[in-house]
Design a protein around this nucleic acid. Structure first.
Lengths: 156, 156
DNA sequence: TCTCAATAAAGAAAATTTTTCTGTTAAATG
DNA sequence: CATTTAACAGAAAAATTTTCTTTATTGAGA
């Protein structure tokens, strides 16, 4: 039920490098393959590990624009909220979408080819939604750090 | 040099599921294992694929707080910029950090256990930096969409 | 048109990894 | 002190990755 130090070390290693072999992991932590194998299967089954993915370099495939878009809705009624969230999910330009506390309702991370595509996205995909009040955009000049790994504190 | 349709389909498949086997990929695209293998190796070598990672469920390991922090510096002189970026990188609470265009200088995605930890992070790690002028925080109520996959348009 | 070279893909064998299975050790419990 | 259970080790089996050899296909130039 509760993760021990070994589990946390495995999680941490795999979120840095998902291609580590059982052998490599076992070696680095002074165990045989079996316990490492069984722990990984447990972490996967219990969904501590949500999935494994390849991270693609967006600029190398021509996605020059990464931006955050804040969205404010006209109404915070339950059906409005649900409608917006349902419509945002299938938009592939939207890599991330968060329901926010405070001045904005949603914050979206948007990835597109160029400014032209961004403009089309906002005008044709966001602004057409029924209950959108405001959209503000902030553009990223440079990626300083882009980690997918959740901070895991390993006591030693 | 330029990626063709098959390369894009492989990239797209692997950024959804990094554990797909060559056999599965080959089968789904009507090819044998060899061309799939060679294309993947090419995509890795050329860094179209930056890395493979396991995605960990932050809440399941007790990270209840995910927030964005905007940072404004007191000065935009080159050395100040570089100093800030150098100091942010090793902070493991900071999963992402972007240099922004416009009103804020940096936007950080921060992940910690609880509000207490967030407060300590801002006060002890951010506010102690030499050239920080302002820090504003926005807290996430709910994750609506959290994709790591770059939108890839596959013509068909 | 023919030949040659280059590219892409197929198929099979070798190497490595994952997965399963069996047995051992150690800790904990009654 | 005996017994049960959990964690681990080691080896065998199954599957996957990697390498190697061969076959088509295409395009350029003689």
């Amino acid at each position: 039920m509760k993760l021990d130090l070994t589990d946390l070390r495995i999680l941490n290693a795999l979120q840095q490098n998902g291609k580590l072999t059982m052998k490599e992991l076992a070696g680095s932590m002074g165990l045989s393959i079996t316990p490492v194998y069984e722990r990984i299967k447990y972490l996967e089954k219990q969904k501590y590990i949500k999935k494994y993915v390849a991270l693609v370099d967006r600029k190398k495939i021509g996605k020059e624009i990464l931006a955050f878009a804040s969205v404010t809705l006209t109404s915070h009624q339950r059906p409005m909220i649900e409608q917006f969230e349902k419509e945002v999910l299938p938009l592939k330009e939207v890599m991330e979408c968060y329901h926010m506390a405070g001045v904005m309702d949603y914050l979206l991370k948007v990835c597109v080819d160029d400014m032209d595509a961004y403009q089309r996205f906002v005008v044709n995909k966001l602004a057409v939604m029924e209950n959108i009040a405001q959209v503000h955009s902030w553009f990223i000049l440079d990626d300083i750090k882009t980690d997918t790994s959740v901070p895991i504190h390993i006591p030693d």
